[in-house]
Design a protein around this nucleic acid. Structure first.
Lengths: 111, 111
DNA sequence: CAAATAAGTTTGCAGTGCAAACTAGTCTAT
DNA sequence: ATAGACTAGTTTGCACTGCAAACTTATTTG
């Protein structure tokens, strides 16, 4: 029962997490203790500008923490996912799993 | 191998499909031969206006076909997913599956 | 006839993502 | 020493988008 009861799950996706660029960032952060801005720039392929603004949004939403310091004389920005961030990601993953159940596996579900 | 080789998959998600409202619409369409506007409005919880505009975008993108007719004297709009729509949805599903592999199952992957 | 309902479409606006421009400081070469 | 390039980001500007509200056109009901 209830193929249709979960049919609205998809609408409850957290938009802050749902955005591909941010999802990517969170996925990387979730798998490391702490990550440098530059590293994230490399692996994500995002421009610095883009990365910076997504970072700010994630920070504003409390999903990541940003730590600014210096390495030698150069500025260094490091990101870390917060507990809330992990929770948001876990929730998102869960809903996503529910969504995938709605999507037909096969190209065409003959009716 | 290559947990990192798929790390960019998330960026290749089709935005036309990625939008929750449209994903919902496509998911419904994929599981029926043809669906009425009104029915979609009910199950999606979207307003007519919203539904109409998403429908237009999906149509413009060639993912759905819209057939207009009359039932008795009232206009009747029916939607059907196209072959391209099924393909887009299948591709999306596949990428989504790849994405989910990046997301940690457990709340916290202790490092 | 007037008002309500049906079935959508169009409009207006607030919010967003992205690229390009900008900032601030450091390093290098002359 | 200072002009120019590089590093490490941030801010700005704009085009696009999703959503709610207003509008349209026709039908049914009181």
């Amino acid at each position: 029962m209830s193929g249709t009861s979960r049919i609205g799950e998809v609408m409850a996706l957290d938009r802050l997490v749902h955005e591909p660029a941010r999802l990517l960032i969170l996925a990387v952060l979730a798998n490391a203790r702490e990550v440098e801005f530059g590293f994230l720039e490399q692996v994500s392929g995002l421009s610095k500008g883009n990365l910076s603004s997504h970072m700010s949004k994630l920070e504003a939403g409390g999903l990541v923490e940003v730590k600014k310091s210096f390495r030698g004389k150069r500025p260094l920005t490091e990101l870390r996912i917060t507990a809330a961030g992990r929770k948001a990601l876990a929730d998102y993953r869960q809903r996503l799993a529910a969504v995938m159940q709605e999507l037909p596996e096969a190209p065409t579900p003959r009716k």
